[in-house]
Design a binder for these strands. Structure first.
Lengths: 228, 228
DNA sequence: TTTTCCTTTGCACAACCTTTACACAGCACT
DNA sequence: AGTGCTGTGTAAAGGTTGTGCAAAGGAAAA
């Protein structure tokens, strides 16, 4: 169950050093010293992640990456001698997942490889219940909806954002300036009643309970009453 | 419609600089100046990715990350002044997806954010070669056809792509910009109504049900109504 | 060429965010 | 109680933005 790394690097000494370190860290390592070798090994589909030097004797690592991206989404970490910033940007644009400047600390390389593999594992595990419940309300970010007793509320985009923030802070007071910043994405100016309007509309849609679910804290902001 | 970044950084000047740059690059930005604010906002599930400074006035960015990881797999990029290698390793071990030392080039930050978001999109993409069924619709990638109650729909190439992407994400909202990228293979420019046209045509071919199978999520994109 | 399809253009319309306006509630001070 | 200030509730009007769709223009395939 160990991860298989394909290491494409022309400098024999460095490649063997890294290969040994990666092996010690529990990876199974395939090595290639040229771009073409690397490309055919990667195409073989028998590795989980590729570490790819950019400076190679035959074809550039960037071209190898381009060729790979034309057919797969195999994770690729670029490795390169001191990076001009533009180089890095290009690397990412071509489809790299990470970019590590040489000389690199092997520990950091391993940490980054593991972070990338972990990310992939997370993404592929069905990450459903990101939904949260507050009393009779249920927030479902995937649908961008909030359900009250399993009935979806007909909220506008802004209303959704506002209620979302209030729920995330359920039980404590959210200052108007923060609510404005977080839900509306701009600063609260004097005499701006926009927020009050959205709160008013939200209360209506939530059923105008008494006492209201969204409490007013005069001079401060609003607070969603924590469910009993 | 655009990716939402949560920027947690206490240095007002730097935060505003980055926020402005990210906005210009097409992100929608939410800001927090403290760890606690950042944590509540991230919990609110109203962002796609988090940029997190480690040095914060109240609680350490690492603790914020730990708390987040206890409940979500939200992508997190750490940002820090100290370049100590051990710090980086710790950051990754706690669950960071990337680690950028300050002072960071905003262009590189954006490139890394986009690489991470792209990786997630790739990972979550459904196996496009398997045939799938959604209610009365059946996608058969081998023939590039979609059947409604076993009767093939007369779709054009683009319509097939659009519907297929919507189905692959059935039940959740697909942003217009993503739909454009995945189905049409190019970026969504301002005033480009192409997608709206294809949606309109698709709805017609699907029978113009009411409520429509392809729901409009104003300001965001479209969503295929998950079959009961 | 003809046909099919993709894209652009233009207009109408709907959704919705914001402003305006006024009424009223809370609070401090007389 | 009365007065005035400040902050809030909400209806209605105003303005902006996003969307639906027909029709025409182009581009690509047949």
């Amino acid at each position: 169950m160990q991860n298989r790394v394909l290491l494409v690097e022309d400098d024999d000494e460095l490649r063997q050093l890294l290969a040994r370190y990666l092996t010690n860290q529990g990876f199974s390592v395939r090595e290639a010293a040229t771009g073409n070798d690397g490309l055919s090994l990667a195409r073989g589909q028998n590795c989980d992640i590729v570490v790819l030097d950019i400076m190679l004797p035959d074809i550039s690592g960037l071209d190898v990456l381009r060729a790979l991206r034309a057919e797969t989404h195999l994770p690729v970490v670029l490795l390169t001698a001191r990076g001009d910033e533009t180089d890095r940007i290009v690397g990412f644009e071509v489809g790299a997942d990470d970019y590590i400047p040489k000389p690199c600390n092997p520990r950091e390389l391993v940490a980054r490889l593991q972070a990338l593999l972990r990310r992939i594992a997370w993404d592929q595990a069905v990450d459903l219940d990101a939904s949260r419940t507050y009393g009779d309300l249920r927030v479902e970010p995937a649908h961008r909806r909030i359900y009250q007793d399993d009935v979806p509320l007909e909220l506008t985009a802004t209303e959704y954002e506002v209620l979302q923030v209030l729920l995330a802070h359920a039980g404590s007071v959210v200052r108007k300036t923060d609510l404005m910043q977080w839900a509306l994405g701009r600063r609260l100016e004097a005499h701006d009643r926009t927020l009050d309007m959205h709160i008013s509309n939200l209360r209506k849609k939530l059923g105008n309970d008494d006492p209201p679910r969204i409490e007013t804290v005069r001079g401060l902001g609003y607070s969603y009453r924590v469910p009993a």
